[in-house]
Amino acid sequence: MKKQKAFENFIHGIFLILGLITVGCVLLITVYLVVSGIPAIRKIGIRDFLFNAKWASAAKVPSYGILPFILTSVYGTAGAILIGVPIGFLTSVYLAKLAPAKIRTVVSGAVSLLAGIPSVVYGLVGMMVLVPGIRNLFHIPDGASLLAAIIVLAIMILPSIINVSITALEAVPKEYEDASLALGATPVETYFKVSVPAAKSGIAAAVVLGVGRAIGEAMAVMMVSGNAPNLPELFGSVRFLTTAVASEMSYSSGLQRQALFSIALVLFLFIMLTGAALNFFLKRSKEE
């Protein structure tokens, strides 16, 4: 009996340690980012760092203003949401409520496949197909632009939005829909006026998850956005927070490298905020 209890405790201990590994990693990354991100911000000055629009990190007189990156990340994410959410949301309503079983299997399979494609592949296809396409379609000198990044991001966030929304829509009690149908509403009326409002917190969570995925993506956007540190323009070459870190890290040194860590810290804060928003919506959807 005693032996068994000791064994039991031992296993508990192992599980505790395994659980703490994750916590430890998060703590380690947070502490590291803060410690390595703060010095450059202090040296450059927080106002100059966040609100100066000129980034010239390797120049003789360097300037470390990340306003273009912040705005680009915000616009790019907003654009991706603007395109991705209507498509993703309507797809999920269709799949959860309307689609025949066969179509549903095929489409959900395709969505899962989309989620599994590595981001570098999105970037490559964007670079070979989308960028020249935009160039020819809009008759601009070069297609690598904010628009190209927005389109790539919109496609990349579709799986998260669709999958989470479907789960939310399927969790709506069948009685609600039956009641609506019994009162004479058509199926489509029922889905949009009963099911969707009932699932709205879950759908909001899906959108926030999409935001998180879009804001954190680096590889794919780096290959299609041109990477010049300009203030964002739809057809202009732009650099995101993520790509600012990724593109210069390999050869950076000194204050430039420290400033890259500071950018990562700012990005981290953005992602923490989206994470908090996600938790908020998920909690609300559970309470309902």
Partner: peptide, 25 residues
Amino acid sequence: EDACKYRQELTSTGDVITTVSQNPD
């Protein structure tokens, strides 16, 4: 130095070559 007006700043030689091969201008 410090005076170039780049339309695209790419992070590898391969990317530069691919991009130039895709765009006639």
